[in-house]
Design a binder for these strands. Structure first.
Lengths: 118, 118
DNA sequence: CTCATAGGTAACTGCTAGGTTACCTGTTTA
DNA sequence: TAAACAGGTAACCTAGCAGTTACCTATGAG
C-alpha cells in the first residue's frame, strides 16, 4: 500500500499554504526574480517569506541559483506533474469528461504550434 | 490577484496529510464504505480517523450519507478537478509534453469505450 | 574604503493540527 | 428488552508551523 514516494508528501504539504501557492504563481510570471521582489508582494516579513521559499525549494517546487548578492528563483513543474500523474492514474475513472476537455485544449495548443512552425 | 476561491484552500489543506490522501484512495476503491472500515486501515484511533474524514468532507472531497447506524462515505472528484483546472491554466506553459501524453491516454480510453458500445 | 543592500541564521512565541481518553446517542439483533 | 455495535461530542495534551526581532555575512556602488 506504499505507492506514494515521500517526495510528493513534501510537495503536497508545501502547496497547503496559500502564500506558497501565490509564490509559485509569481515565479511563473517572473522567472529569475529575487527574494526581495517576492517578499514585496506579501504582508509578512522577509524572514517569513524566506522560510516559505525554502519549504518550496525542499519540496522541489522551486529551483534557485545564487548570482552575486541576490538569489534567482525559478519555478519547477516536475513535482506538480507527478501529482497530476498520481491523480489521473488513481482517480482515473472519475475523469472521463474532464479528460475530453483536456483533449480539445491539447489539440488546440498543438494546432497553434504546427501553424507557427509551418 | 484574488483568482482562487476559498473552496480550494480547504481542499489543498485537506490533501496535505498523507492519511487523508490514503483515505481518498480507499473511498475510490470502496464507495459507500463505513467509518469503521476506513478506520481499520490506520494505526490511529477511530476519533482521529473521524476528524480526518470531517476535514475531507468540509473540503468537499467526501460526500457522506447516514444510513441507519452507519455512515456511507463517497469520494467527490470535483475539488480535485478544480485544482487541476487551476494548474493547467496557470502553469499551462509548463505542460506541453505532459499534455501530449494525456491526449494519448484519453484517446485510448475513448477507443475502448467506443468498441464496447459498438 | 565605506556603506547601503540582499540575503541568511538564531532564538523565541502563539496558535492550531493531530492525536488521545472518556463519555454519550441512536440502531440493530439475540 | 438488553446488550452489542456504529457513530458523535467534549476536553485535553503536544509538537510543529508560521510568524516575529535581533544579529551576522557578503557583495555592489559611490
Amino acid at each position: 500500500m506504499r505507492n506514494e514516494p515521500d517526495t510528493l508528501d513534501a510537495a503536497f504539504a508545501a502547496l497547503a499554504h496559500p502564500a506558497r501557492r501565490r509564490m509559485l504563481d509569481l515565479l511563473v510570471q517572473a522567472p529569475g526574480c529575487s527574494v526581495k521582489w517576492v517578499t514585496s508582494h506579501f504582508d509578512f516579513s522577509r524572514i517569513a517569506a524566506m522560510k516559505h521559499l525554502s519549504v518550496l525549494e525542499d519540496a522541489g517546487l522551486i529551483i534557485s541559483e545564487k548570482k552575486g548578492r541576490t538569489r534567482e528563483l525559478y519555478f519547477n513543474s516536475v513535482p506538480i506533474q507527478q501529482i497530476y500523474d498520481r491523480w489521473t492514474s488513481q482517480y482515473g475513472s472519475f475523469w472521463a469528461e474532464r479528460l475530453a476537455d483536456v483533449k480539445e485544449r491539447v489539440e488546440a495548443r498543438q494546432a497553434k504550434g504546427e501553424r507557427k512552425s509551418a
